[in-house]
Amino acid sequence: MTQLYMLDIPENTPIVDVADQDPHVTVDKVGPYFRIAADTPIVIDRRATGCRHAVWYSSVAGLVQSRITQWDKDAMRIEPT
């Protein structure tokens, strides 16, 4: 299981929406956070999100038994540990 949290603020919403387009991904809420989970690695295309770099590189709030294996201007890839 791949699982990460993002804070529910307007700047992060496009990132969560892009992640949610993957049919393997489920999104729900835990407190003020989005919980983004999948049985597969989660890959988010930065350009599809339209995020500025400052937002992109500070968007992840938490990781559950997962690690970030790519986090650059192109994409974020999170895989199970």
């Binding site: 699982q3 990460l4 949290y5 835990v30 407190g31 956070y33 992840v60 709030a61 938490g62 990781l63 559950v64 690690r67 970030i68």
Partner: peptide
């Protein structure tokens, strides 16, 4: 990585608050 893992624990612990 360790920070984000610890933070995920606190996110769950404090969601009820």
């Amino acid at each position: 990585a360790a920070l984000l893992t610890r933070k995920a624990e606190l996110i769950v612990e404090r969601a009820a608050d």
